[in-house]
Design a binder for these strands. Structure first.
Lengths: 138, 138
DNA sequence: CTTGACTCTTGAGTTACATCAAGGGTCTAG
DNA sequence: CTAGACCCTTGATGTAACTCAAGAGTCAAG
């Protein structure tokens, strides 16, 4: 099913939508296995490498760090119990995102109030934004 | 009103809730003016420095970068038109936060679906999380 | 065969924001 | 006076995730 035509680093970079340097970086970081080489030293990849790269990119889009992705990749290769770990990590990530959203909402609301209260002109002493920033710790 | 007792760097670090090294770093970065010195070379601060430090900390809590804070500080010292700039920057920051929240929500929802769909056991091929990550680009 | 695009390695640089280490002066309470 | 806490400078280190530069070899089309 999967054709076995060998791909250069430039090609897989193209299909996976990442930079060539990034691929070499991922390899150094152990996120990608060392590929076969041509006699010339050129790296040779197959479709599996493209999938793996896409996996990494997706996971990154979901906010996983490269360290976490390394874990996910290991878990995804673990046929026994790996799925449980994956679910755990995903749930943890979800929790972290939720917390981040709450935190950002808090900040947003505070800032929003200040922006609305500020007339946008007049003396610095009358600007509620500046006043809030300069105020002694509440 | 403001007492003129001179404060050491350790004292203002304490009252503003930042590290001593951070204060020297801010000074190098131009966020804090160079303070007077004792003959020994010790930095001497007053209450205004504490206010300024708190300003910086608050602004950082609101998600402003140090570059933006440098701007805010300059604007806050500008008696003519400064307030307008402050309001603009704050509004821009608010907009950025809103966008970030929307983005995080999107990610959150995607991840949440996957976590809920994953049974947490079984074969990797049946895990919707892994499937979603490995899937060809949609 | 030539040319231009592609790939190789090593090693350094980037951003943002600190944080630490080393080696040495200074201050103050007892 | 002395111990211990505090402060000084310079310069290096750390994190995350790349990104780039230099110099050299390789490949494919025409």
């Amino acid at each position: 099913m999967t054709t076995q035509n060998s791909l250069t680093i430039g090609r897989i970079a193209q299909s996976a939508g990442v930079a060539i340097d990034t691929i070499r970086f991922y390899e150094r970081e152990g996120l990608l296995p060392e590929p076969r080489r041509r006699p010339s030293g050129y790296r040779e990849y197959d479709e599996a490498a493209v999938s793996r790269l896409r996996f990494i990119r997706r996971a990154k889009d979901l906010g996983f760090t490269l360290d976490e992705i390394r874990e996910l990749l290991a878990l995804s290769a673990d046929r026994h119990g790996g799925v449980e770990g994956v679910r755990e990590r995903a749930a943890a990530r979800l929790k972290a995102i939720d917390e981040r959203i709450v935190e950002l909402q808090r900040v947003r609301d505070g800032l929003s109030e200040l922006v609305e209260a500020c007339p946008g002109h007049g003396a610095p002493e009358d600007c509620p934004i500046l006043k809030a920033l300069a105020e002694p710790t509440r």
